[in-house]
C-alpha cells in the first residue's frame, strides 16, 4: 500500500493550508479557505470511519426490518422501506425503537460530518 495513506495526506495538506496559506490569503478569500479546510477535515474523517458508519447503519436497519419481517439486502433499499413505512404511519404508536435506531445512525454520521455537535445530546 502507498504510504502515507489518503487520510494522512489530507490531514497534512489541511495543516499546511491553515498554518501557511490561509494567513497569506487576502481577507476576501478567508471564507473560501476555511470551507476548503472544512471539506478536507470531513473527507479525512470519512476515510477513517466510513466502514464503521455503514456497519452501524446496517445493524440498526437490520434490527428494525427484522421486526417487519424484512431482510436487509442493500442499504438503500432498506432506507427506502423504512422511509415508506414511517410515512404510512407504521411507527405512530411505537416510536421508541425507531428513534433509537435513527439516533445511532445519526451519531455515526455526525462523527464524520460534525462531531462537535454530538455533545448537544
Amino acid at each position: 500500500m502507498n504510504q502515507p495513506d489518503a487520510h494522512d495526506l489530507l490531514v497534512t495538506a489541511r495543516e499546511a493550508l491553515l498554518t501557511h496559506l490561509l494567513p497569506a490569503l487576502p481577507k476576501g478569500l478567508h471564507y473560501e479557505g476555511r470551507m476548503v479546510a472544512s471539506a478536507m477535515l470531513i473527507a479525512s474523517r470519512e476515510l477513517a470511519q466510513a466502514a464503521d458508519c455503514t456497519e452501524v447503519e446496517r445493524q440498526a436497519l437490520e434490527a428494525l426490518l427484522a421486526r417487519g419481517g424484512q431482510a436487509v439486502t442493500e442499504l438503500e433499499l432498506a432506507r427506502e422501506w423504512l422511509a415508506r413505512n414511517i410515512r404510512q404511519g407504521a411507527y405512530d404508536q411505537h416510536a421508541t425503537r425507531l428513534l433509537e435506531a435513527l439516533r445511532a445512525i445519526n451519531r455515526a454520521q455526525l462523527s464524520i460530518s460534525n462531531p462537535k455537535v454530538l455533545a448537544h445530546d
Binding site: E32, M35, V36, S38, A39, I42, A95, L99, L102, R103, N106, Q109, L110, S113, N114, V117, L118, H120, D121
Partner: peptide, 23 residues
Amino acid sequence: SLELALTGRMVSELEQEIILLTR
C-alpha cells in the same frame, strides 16, 4: 460549488435536532 457541497453535510446536524426535539 463548495458551499453547496458543504451545505449537504449539514443535514445530519439538522436531523439530530429533529430526533432530539421529537423525542
